[in-house]
C-alpha cells in the first residue's frame, strides 16, 4: 500500500472533519457505541439491550443489501439462523470458546451467502421470494428429524454451559461497531460509490469500469457475515433455542421494518429505527406480539405510501424546506 505523506494525511483528516456528512457519520458510530457502553448503568436488563444491538446489526445488514445494492432479501433470517447454528454447534461439538463461536457463526453466514450468490441473477420479486424460499428450506433441513444426530433436529440447542453475560454484551457492542464501520466505509469510499452506481444502472456502471458482479457479491457477503455473527450472538444470549426461533421469518421482517423506518442508504437511519422501534416492541409487543405486528404492518404501508426514504429522508426534506424558506425571506 502506498505511503501517504504526513502533510497530506493531515489535510485529508481536516477535509473529513470539514465535510459535514463525514463528521456527522463519525458521530453516528461513536454515539451508539458510547450509549450502549453506558446503558447497563441505567437499565438493568442487559439481555434486551443485547437483542437491541443484534437488531441494529440486522437493520444495517438490510441497509447494505437494500440501501446500497437495491436487493431486498426477505430471507435475510437464513444467515442469522445459519450463524446461530454454526456458532452453537462449534461450541458444543468442537468445544471452541464462545467468542470464537461468534466468528464461526459469521463464517456460517458467509458460506450460506456464497451458496445463494446465483440468486443475484434474479431481480425484484424473484430475488426477494427466492431468498425467502432458501431461508425456509435451510430451516426445514436443519430442523428435520432425520438430521437429529447432527443438528439435534427440531429439539433445538442448549448453550447454558457457555453463558457469560459480560462477554456476550461486549461482543454485541463490537459487532455493532463493526457493522457501523462497514456502512461508514460504504458511504464514503470508491467501493460504496460503485455500489450506488450499480444500483442505479448496472450496464452504465460496467461501462464506467465497475466489476458489477464482484462488487455486489462482496457487499452481499458482508451483509451475510454480519447476520451470521448477529445470529450466533443471539443464540449465545438466548441460551436455549429452537430452529423455529432463529429461522423465524419475522426476524427478516423486523430488520426490514427497522431499516426502512429509519431510512436506507444512510448510517443513522437503521440504527435509529432499530432503537426506537425495538423499544416500542419491548413496551408493547412482548406480551402481545400481534399488536406489534399490526403496528409494523401499518408502518410499512405508511412508509411506502408517504415516506419511502424513511425518517432520515423526511428530516432531510424538512430541513431543506426550512432552509430555502429562510433564504427566500432574506
Amino acid at each position: 500500500m502506498a505511503k501517504v505523506p504526513p502533510r497530506r494525511l493531515v489535510s485529508r483528516f481536516t477535509r473529513m472533519v470539514i465535510d459535514r456528512s463525514i463528521s456527522w457519520d463519525l458521530v453516528g458510530i461513536v454515539v451508539p457505541i458510547a450509549a450502549f457502553g453506558l446503558a447497563p448503568k441505567f437499565y438493568s436488563n442487559e439481555l434486551l439491550l443485547t437483542y437491541m444491538m443484534v437488531y441494529i446489526v440486522m437493520a444495517q445488514g438490510i441497509n447494505i443489501s437494500y440501501g446500497f445494492t437495491g436487493y431486498l432479501p426477505f430471507g435475510y433470517v437464513g444467515f442469522f439462523g445459519a450463524g446461530a447454528y454454526a456458532g452453537s454447534l462449534a461450541v458444543l461439538d468442537l468445544h471452541v470458546p464462545a467468542i470464537l463461536g461468534v466468528l464461526i457463526g459469521g463464517v456460517g453466514g458467509l458460506l450460506v451467502g456464497s451458496l445463494l450468490l446465483p440468486l443475484f441473477r434474479l431481480r425484484g420479486a424473484y430475488f426477494a421470494i427466492g431468498s425467502l424460499a432458501a431461508a425456509n428450506a435451510l430451516a426445514d433441513i436443519i430442523s428435520n428429524p432425520s438430521l437429529t444426530s447432527i443438528t439435534n433436529g427440531p429439539y433445538g440447542i442448549n448453550l447454558a454451559s457457555a453463558y457469560s453475560s459480560g462477554e456476550i454484551y461486549v461482543s454485541a457492542m463490537v459487532l455493532v461497531g463493526l457493522s457501523l464501520a462497514v456502512v461508514f466505509y460504504l458511504r464514503h469510499s470508491q467501493f460504496g460509490l460503485s455500489l450506488r452506481a450499480i444500483k442505479e444502472d448496472e450496464y452504465s456502471a460496467s461501462m464506467a469500469g465497475v466489476n458489477v458482479v464482484k462488487q455486489r457479491s462482496i457487499a452481499w457477503l458482508m451483509a451475510a457475515t454480519m447476520a451470521g455473527m448477529a445470529g450466533s450472538i443471539f443464540g449465545w444470549a438466548t441460551t436455549v433455542f429452537y430452529p423455529s426461533a432463529v429461522f423465524d421469518t419475522s426476524i427478516s421482517v423486523i430488520s426490514i421494518v427497522f431499516a426502512l423506518f429509519g431510512g436506507t442508504g444512510s448510517l443513522w437511519g437503521p440504527t435509529f429505527g432499530a432503537i426506537v422501534l425495538y423499544s416500542a416492541y419491548t413496551a408493547v409487543g412482548i406480551s402481545n406480539p400481534q399488536y406489534f405486528q399490526l403496528i409494523y404492518g401499518v408502518i410499512i404501508i405508511a412508509l411506502i405510501l408517504f415516506a419511502p426514504k424513511g425518517i432520515v429522508g423526511v428530516a432531510k426534506t424538512t430541513r431543506a424546506r426550512i432552509f430555502t424558506r429562510g433564504k427566500q425571506v432574506v
Binding site: R196, E200, D201, S204, A205
Partner: peptide, 11 residues
Amino acid sequence: KPFKSLTVREN
C-alpha cells in the same frame, strides 16, 4: 444514463 443520485464529480 448518468448516475442521477451521484454528483457530477462522483460520476
